[in-house]
Design a binder for these strands. Structure first.
Lengths: 145, 145
DNA sequence: TTATTAGTCTACAAATTTTGTAGTGTTATT
DNA sequence: AATAACACTACAAAATTTGTAGACTAATAA
C-alpha cells in the first residue's frame, strides 16, 4: 500500500494539475481543500520541488505550481520521489536495486514473477501522468452545451 | 515493497514446494537453510497453516508440509495472508477495501490508474503458484542425459 | 527600508508497524 | 513416561511513518 505521504502528494498534484498555468497556489489552500496537515504538506511539496516536479514563488502572491505541463510528469516519477521503489522486491528494483539479504539460492526462483509484476506496473505508471489524475472541476464544465 | 515477513514466507514456501510429497520438514531445517529467525518463522508457518496453505504434524517425525500440490496455491493467496492488501490504495482493494479517509473529490480522479495497476498485478499473481517459485534443486537434475 | 507574506530548512516527537524473542502449553511418537 | 516438535500468547526492540515546532530566507508592497 502507498503511504499516506504518497497519497497526499498525489492529491496535491492532482489539485495543482487542475490549476496549471493559473499562477501560484498557496500551501494553505491545498492543505485546506485536500485536508492534508499543512506542515506535513510543506515537506512533501518541498521534496517535489527539489526533484523538479514543482516550482514555487515566495512572498505575497507566491505559492506552488507545476514546473511543467501536467502531461510531462509521469506517476512513476512522482512515486519514486515520495514513496521510493515501485518494485516489490529490492533485488528487482531498477532505481533502488539492492542485493537480497541472505539470498541462499544459487539461481533465484522467486524474482522472475516479481520482475513480471514490476514490468506490468511500470507499463502503466510510466505512461500515466498528472494529466490523467487531474482533479475534475465540475464548475469548469459548461453544461449549457 | 514486500515486508521481510512476506519474503520469508515466500522463501519457506519455495523450499516446501520443492519437497512436496516427501513428508514433514522441520521448522528448524527451513530456518537454517533459508536463514530465517526461527521464532519468527514459527509464527509465519502457523499463520499459513491456519489459512489452509500448510499442514503440520506434531511429535517425532513431525514438521510442516504443503497441504495441497504446489500448483494449487496462488501467490496472490499467499500475499493476502501474510502481507495483506495487494492493491496500492485502500479504496481500490478487492479483499481489504476501505473508503479513502478524507476523500474530498466527488468523483475520484486518482483511483482509475490504481485499479489498472491492481488488475495488471493480479493477473500475474493469481495465475502464478508455488510451483512457479519452487526452489530449483540442482542435485535433483540428471546432467547425465 | 521596513513590515508583511509565504516558502525553506532542520530537528524533533508521537504514533504505528515491523521484526524478533520468551516462555508455556499441547499433541504425537517411542 | 520421556521426548520431540508444533501451538499459542504476550511482550519487547527496532524501524518507519506521520506529524509538529520554530527559526530562517526571499519577495513584495507600502
Amino acid at each position: 500500500m502507498l503511504s499516506k505521504k504518497t497519497q497526499y502528494a498525489l492529491r496535491a498534484l492532482s489539485f495543482l494539475a487542475a490549476r496549471f498555468d493559473q499562477g501560484p497556489v498557496l500551501i494553505h489552500e491545498i492543505a485546506e481543500q485536500k485536508k492534508i496537515p499543512i506542515k506535513f504538506l510543506e515537506n512533501i511539496l518541498l521534496e517535489l520541488k527539489n526533484a523538479d516536479v514543482l516550482d514555487s514563488k515566495k512572498g505575497r502572491g507566491g505559492g506552488y505550481f507545476l514546473k511543467t505541463a501536467p502531461d510531462q510528469t509521469s506517476l512513476a516519477k512522482v512515486m519514486r520521489i515520495v514513496e521510493g521503489p515501485i518494485a516489490l522486491l529490492p533485488c528487482v528494483s531498477l532505481y533502488f536495486y539492492q542485493k537480497c539479504a541472505d539470498c541462499t539460492e544459487e539461481v533465484c526462483s522467486i524474482n522472475g514473477v516479481f520482475i513480471q509484476v514490476r514490468d506490468a506496473t511500470l507499463k502503466i505508471l510510466e505512461s500515466k501522468t498528472l494529466e490523467d489524475i487531474q482533479e475534475l472541476r465540475l464548475e469548469a464544465i459548461d453544461f449549457s452545451i
